[in-house]
Computed example of a mutant assay.
Amino acid sequence: MRLPEARGPITARLFASLAGEPGEAVLVTPVPGGDPLHDGDLQLALFACYELHYQGFDDVDERWEWEPSLLGVRAGLERHFEEALAAAVPRPRPVAPGQVRRALADLCRAGDGPLSRHLQRRATLDQFREFVVHRSIYHLKEADPHTWAIPRLRGRAKAALVEIQADEYGGGRRERMHSELFRATMRGLGLDDAYGAYLDRVPGITLAVSNLMSLFGLHRRRRGALAGHLAALEMTSSLPNRRYAAGLRRLGGDDAAALFYDEHVQADAVHEQVAAHDLCGGLAADDPALTGDILYGAACALEVDRLWAEQVLGRWERGESSLEAAGHLVS
């Protein structure tokens, strides 16, 4: 993957820095009054900073990863992101550590929104392809952001996270890794399955969905929020994925293309119990001070994903593409 096209003054200056030798990174401060969660320029800049801790960019010197000036740039972008999250997501009511599982269930009760039903029953093939393009930003690195928490946990919570992640990585079998299963879905839809192939096509809110995981994953102080985030994903996964699989088959997708969704129907029915009871319940029991962060992380996951789905559906209802303009999707 190479650096994407700049989307504004922040990414233009940042990418100009990253294209050169590691040194002083220059940042344009975001304009006050905007919406950081939907700001494609800000979210792409933050995504690029985070990506240096994952697969990186072929045209960026790897020494940039820990360049102090770039870490300062990232911290500034994160402040805007975190302030926007605080404004959009009220902190859930505090509960005792023993009530975390029930509180998570209450938060996730309305987790399956209208997007999954649209994809199951009414979406066109082009719309389903667009949906998969959006999700490729995360699913091609599926599990990686949450894996950052493993060395930051202990006891029951660590064992639970390792159990979940082992399944996400296919139990040691490459062809069963969820990221590889998603590649098969992309190929079945005639899409480019290369890592980051559609980074230029997705809007800011799609990048925010991925950036939220990295924000929580790359900061030890956010380990509680990361655990809650993962629990929310697992607890709201099985039914939507059942609908995605049905929608894909309705549109002519075969079993190989639908396997990613079929796998999540089965695996996440188990994962949601492990995540809520052992990961989050164990973490709260071990460190009661993190209880509020666990619930906040879950609430953030649900709200940012809701905002993303709302934008996608809104554009489709207006007869528009949900992606940024550029070429055709089918490879």
Rank of each mutant, 00 (worst) to 15 (best):
G247F: 01
G56H: 11
P4Q: 04
C300H: 03
V132Q: 09
P90M: 12
V162A: 15
L3P: 00
R109K: 06
L37R: 02
A157R: 09
H134A: 12
F15T: 01
P240F: 08
E65F: 04
P94N: 05
Q311H: 14
L42N: 01
D293I: 00
L218M: 13
G327S: 11
G23C: 13
R223V: 15
C280Y: 05
D262N: 03
E5A: 08
F216E: 05
E130Q: 15
L279C: 06
L3R: 01
A166M: 09
A105L: 14
E168Q: 08
R109N: 02
L207E: 06
L189K: 04
D112K: 02
R154N: 06
V330M: 10
S17V: 05
E130H: 06
D268M: 01
P97R: 13
A232D: 05
P30Y: 07
Y261F: 15
L37Y: 02
S210R: 09
V31K: 12
K158V: 06
H229W: 11
V60Q: 02
C300M: 05
W64M: 01
W64H: 01
L181Y: 03
L233Y: 08
G171K: 01
G72R: 13
G297H: 10
G172F: 11
D58M: 06
R122N: 12
G190T: 10
I10N: 07
A326L: 14
G297S: 07
V202N: 05
E310A: 15
A299I: 09
L14D: 06
V274R: 03
L140P: 14
G319V: 11
P151F: 15
E263C: 05
A246K: 01
G172N: 07
P36E: 10
M235S: 00
G76W: 07
G172H: 09
